[in-house]
């Protein structure tokens, strides 16, 4: 297998590249992203290409001629870029990279990152959608995911390759940047005053494992990948020892501004998660991708809160500057 990892600079892409490198049946791994990888990679080839630079991207993908694509070039708003930029980057990356990979001629399977945001919330939508539920995204990130799935499905039809759409629950972990993790780690967190809807999270490592499993089994179709169990805003906030601030109606506009000032911009899909919940039925992925032992949502939360604000580096000695007031 020659695997192209799009979005390799992100935490997820880097992790998938590491997992693929360790396998004997993977002949070569190559990837690109806007930013360099976050961890040490071995035999993977990384190239720093902005997906908007189409010609360079097409040339890179064509020269590599991948047999499998792990598509992580779907950027969540406010993880590392704004809503508009994330949408444009996701769109460009999907269209250009998948198209070029298909035209290179050796493509055998594709797995793309999507999210359970594609189902949307509210209205007549099911509360716990499975893969048969109608798609009706209610947030910009959900619509981005829907577009990515549509592009991938078109590619599957035209070139007759199996495409798996992995609809991940909001990915969160102690080290990956995630907007929902940032919000929950604020000292005071806005929570809905009149509701306490359930939401699920997925550990970053599990998302990477699911991607490898999908490529390994040449899986086809959509899969919800969620951490078992659930959490709710009030419970999660108290578990982290934070102060819940009940908010209702127009108060959310104000809460949003405060959260952004405090360093945690709240994109619409995270606001929706807090106000209306975000759950899905993950049974199919467990059965067909063999994802046994996914990290439960409550453990992902515990991991998130166990993350120290400052991690002292071993052997780094005393910090050079000690300028906190009150300390002698």
């Amino acid at each position: 297998m020659r695997v192209l990892v799009t979005g390799m600079g992100g935490h997820l892409g880097t992790r998938v590249a590491q997992l693929l490198e360790a396998r004997d049946d993977v002949e070569a791994v190559a990837g690109f992203d806007i930013v360099p990888p976050r961890r040490r990679l071995g035999r993977s080839v990384f190239k720093r290409i902005d997906p908007r630079d189409r010609d360079r991207l097409v040339e890179f993908v064509r020269d590599f001629a991948p047999t499998a694509v792990a598509h992580f070039g779907v950027y969540e708003p406010a993880a590392r870029m704004g809503i508009r930029a994330a949408r444009v980057a996701s769109e460009e990356c999907t269209v250009t990279a998948l198209g070029a990979a298909a035209r290179a001629g050796a493509l055998e399977c594709v797995a793309v990152r999507s999210g359970i945001e594609v189902y949307g919330r509210g209205g007549r939508r099911p509360e716990v959608p499975d893969e048969h539920a109608p798609l009706g995204p209610t947030t910009p990130y959900g619509r981005t995911c829907l577009d990515v799935e549509a592009h991938a499905a078109g590619l599957a039809r035209r070139h007759d390759v199996p495409v798996a759409s992995l609809r991940f629950a909001p990915i969160s972990g102690s080290r990956a940047p995630s907007p929902v993790g940032r919000l929950l780690r604020l000292p005071a967190v806005p929570v809905p005053a009149l509701a306490d809807p359930p939401f699920q999270l997925l550990h970053t490592d599990d998302a990477a494992w699911a991607m490898v499993a999908a490529l390994d089994r040449r899986a086809q179709g959509p899969f919800n990948v969620v951490g078992p169990g659930a959490a709710s805003p009030w419970q999660a906030v108290r578990l982290g020892g934070r102060v819940p601030v009940p908010v209702a109606g127009p108060g959310w506009l104000l809460a949003n501004q405060f959260a952004e000032l405090a360093g945690s911009p709240v994109p619409p899909h995270v606001l929706e998660l807090v106000r209306r919940g975000r759950v899905a039925d993950g049974g199919r992925a467990v059965d067909e991708l063999g994802l046994v032992g996914l990290v439960p949502t409550q453990e992902v939360l515990a991991d998130l809160f166990a993350w120290a604000s400052v991690t002292p580096l071993p052997g780094a000695g005393r910090p050079a500057v000690v300028a906190t007031p009150g300390s002698s």
Binding site: E127, V128, D196, P197, P198, Q200, G229, A230, A231, S232, W234, Q235, A236, V237, R238, L239, G240, G277, V279, D281, T297, Q298
Partner: peptide, 15 residues
């Protein structure tokens, strides 16, 4: 237990 948040909810919102 309620104060510490050491309880879980299930996917269906049950507590």
């Amino acid at each position: 237990r309620r104060w510490d948040g050491r309880y879980a909810v299930d996917e269906f919102g049950g507590d």
